[in-house]
Simulated assay, not measured.
Amino acid sequence: MSKNGNGHRDVWNPVKVFIRLFQGVWKKRDEVSGETYLVDSEVVRDDLDDIADEPFINLFNAPNLSPSEEFKAFGTSMKKVAVELFRINGGKQGYYIANILDKKYYYCGVEWEDVKLKLRELGIGRPDPM
């Protein structure tokens, strides 16, 4: 677990490059600070484990919940949402959207463009300017 709340034990550093020079010795280059130094395999392993520990951006310091815990936090479950999504369009194939906060469920259609249109209908997003 991280010590500073952002998923990293050290000061957060988004870009680290490791190059193996020879058995057990690595060149570590920090692309943000520009520092370069030699480290052993244990330091590389610790840094990579730390980076993979949690999402590195957590602007609201929200807990890292499993999907089932997230659904439970909103008073529902994946099974209940699946049942509601099946009901709204008879289980047709295609894309669906579930607003688990407001318990609203939408069928979008079978094409990705249908999803974009439905999101715009719901006031989310805007037409692609290109």
Rank of each mutant, 00 (worst) to 15 (best):
E35V: 02
E35K: 08
E35C: 02
T36P: 05
Y37L: 13
Y37M: 13
Y37I: 10
L38S: 06
D40L: 03
S41P: 04
V43C: 08
R45P: 00
D46V: 14
D47F: 14
D47W: 13
L48G: 03
D49A: 11
D49C: 12
D49R: 07
D50S: 11
D50F: 07
I51L: 06
D53S: 02
P55T: 12
P55D: 09
P55F: 15
F56V: 10
F56P: 11
N58T: 05
L59D: 10
F60Y: 14
F60M: 14
P63G: 07
N64D: 15
N64V: 15
S66V: 00
S68C: 05
E69M: 09
E70I: 15
E70P: 04
K72P: 02
A73G: 09
A73W: 10
G75E: 07
T76E: 03
M78G: 15
V83F: 15
V83Y: 14
V83D: 15
F86V: 05
R87C: 12
N89F: 11
G90M: 05
G91K: 00
K92L: 13
Q93W: 13
G94V: 03
G94L: 02
Y95Q: 04
Y96E: 00
I97M: 01
N99D: 15
N99S: 06
L101T: 07
D102V: 06
D102I: 07
K103D: 12
K103G: 09
Y105W: 07
Y105C: 01
Y105F: 11
Y107G: 01
Y107I: 01
V110W: 12
D114G: 03
D114E: 08
K116E: 15
